[in-house]
Design a protein around this nucleic acid. Structure first.
Lengths: 140, 140
DNA sequence: ATAAACATTGAACTATACTACAGGGTCAAG
DNA sequence: CTTGACCCTGTAGTATAGTTCAATGTTTAT
């Protein structure tokens, strides 16, 4: 027994069956081989691909961005230099996201502390969290 | 001259005018005072609020989640303990996101290295990036 | 062998988050 | 005092990411 039916795959990846078919239409997962009775039979590894998509979506990437991320490895019509260039750009995006999340986390930690009655805490740590760097660029 | 018209505010925050009115309808920003001629007049600080919303959206939070985040400070009908509890939960979410992004970044760095012809690199670092921890919980 | 649980397609429907009018009023410059 | 850039409300349309449904075929368990 090799391969997963769409239901097994969906369950393993924690997504809906319809979502799997939707991702196939969108080109996020490859069309799998079919059984004699026309059932899709997925390689086990597609569960990881689906889980990746799920997490990446949770991290604010659109399906199109995720498609790009997944196509970075083995892109046949792209030079190594081009792949490297695009990869470095993605890394920068991600670095920025990590940075923003870290600031948000700090703000929430400061808020949690304020809840203990320990103070003094800034009046509005959450808003401050992500605004500081803008000021440096824009000078408002 | 105190306060920003909706157009000035939108420009300062880097969003569309319609978006500002939409966020007002959704309860993400407060209804501002109006001029005699019924124009909205926003406090300067609302630009920061809008920028926060923009960034948080980019980090994968929905408008509803963002609303919750913004209401954590000064929630009148909630005990300090309750606010603290919800805040700690948000911090965990964020910690998880940072973790996932870090793994993704590592994977892309490994991919970028592979582009230099330095090797050997894993065949599929991107998929591996986010799948490892699942295995530990599910034992597949 | 028959019912329950699963699979197929295609099309319609939903939620979220905007975005674009239409039809009007306001304001600042020349 | 008009022209253009701005604002108002309300409604309708769009993009993204699914979700549901109908009508039908297949597999599995009793």
């Amino acid at each position: 027994m090799n391969g997963l039916t769409i239901g097994k795959l969906a369950k393993k990846a924690g997504v809906g069956i319809e979502t799997v078919r939707f991702y196939e239409r969108q080109g996020l997962i490859a069309e799998p081989p079919r059984t004699a009775s026309n059932y899709r039979l997925y390689p086990e590894n597609d569960a990881n691909r689906l889980r990746f998509i799920k997490k990446a979506k949770n991290l604010g990437f659109t399906l199109n961005e995720i498609k790009e991320l997944l196509s970075l490895r083995h892109d046949p019509k792209a030079s190594k230099a081009d792949v490297k260039h695009r990869t470095l750009k993605k890394i920068e995006d991600i670095q920025q996201k990590i940075h923003d999340l870290s600031r948000m986390k700090e703000a929430l930690e400061s808020l949690a502390e304020a809840c203990d009655g320990h103070g003094p805490t800034s009046e509005c740590p959450i808003l401050e969290a992500l605004e500081a760097e803008e000021k440096q660029y824009c000078g408002h």
